[in-house]
């Protein structure tokens, strides 16, 4: 299947690993991601004016019109902004986590398992709240880890805030909030959000922080993703 792809600014820069990961996972499953031509920034959470913020994503939807009906946006902020701007539900704006369902795993080629490894699936905020734009399956990462024999930890903090939003404003805030999550979890932290990745990575010490796509690619047999 061909999906419209909205990478967003982070995935073209600091979150290039997530961009490559998503593309690789989709390619391995026989799906194509085709970038929305000449897309612009979604505005993330930086604009206080709701109309101005929605305007960014409306432009992106215009650019997708006629090309795609289903749009995949991996960055939680981009995903939320696009979904909210699509008031008439003209498009199926989908987060990749909602595409990792039974059919996906049934078709997935497994090369390794996760036995003996502990993971904390960490969703953070925007994938789970507000509920209008939340992903459909809020246990998809846990299900993946247990399906392949890994142990899940840190359930109590999976939806807490890492403070990533404040990392370049008041980094002490981010440090305190990220440490709350790190202290109440174990093993490798599995995230999907580029900002959660950065916040966790900055304060995680020896603990590993990986994208969910790294986990999938490891199971699929790719080298050095975990």
């Amino acid at each position: 299947m061909e999906y419209g792809y909205y990478p967003g600014c982070s995935l073209t820069g600091s979150a290039h690993k997530l961009d490559k990961g998503i593309k690789k996972v989709f390619a391995k499953q026989g799906h194509t991601l085709k970038e929305i031509p000449d897309w612009n920034c979604c505005g993330a959470f930086e604009y206080g004016d709701r109309k101005e913020l929605a305007g960014f994503s409306k432009k992106n939807l215009e650019k997708a019109r006629g090309h795609f009906s289903e749009i995949v946006a991996p960055c939680p902020a981009c995903y939320k902004n696009l979904r909210e701007a699509d008031e008439k539900r003209e498009f199926a704006v989908t987060h990749p986590l909602d595409l990792f369902d039974e059919a996906f795993f049934a078709a997935m080629k497994q090369d390794r398992d996760l036995k003996g490894q502990v993971f904390t699936p960490y969703y953070g905020c925007i994938l789970l709240r507000p509920k209008e734009t939340a992903i459909r399956n809020n246990t998809v990462m846990e299900e993946t880890i247990t399906r392949f024999g890994g142990d899940v930890a840190g359930e109590a903090v999976k939806d807490r805030c890492c403070g990533g939003n404040q990392i370049f404003i008041n980094k002490d805030v981010t440090e305190k909030l990220s440490r709350l999550v790190l202290d109440k979890s174990r093993g490798t932290i599995v995230v999907f959000c580029p900002l959660c990745h950065m916040a966790m990575k900055t304060f995680s010490g020896e603990r590993k922080v990986v994208y969910y796509t790294d986990l999938l690619l490891y199971i699929m047999g790719e080298n050095s993703t975990l």
């Binding site: 959470f45 905020c125 925007i126 709240r129 507000p130 509920k131 939003n165 404040q166 805030v173």
Partner: peptide
């Protein structure tokens, strides 16, 4: 100053 935009309040609020 410090709101992180986590929407926990919205999730808990009876009026969202």
């Amino acid at each position: 100053r410090f709101c992180t935009g986590c929407y926990r309040c919205t999730g808990a609020c009876p009026w969202e």
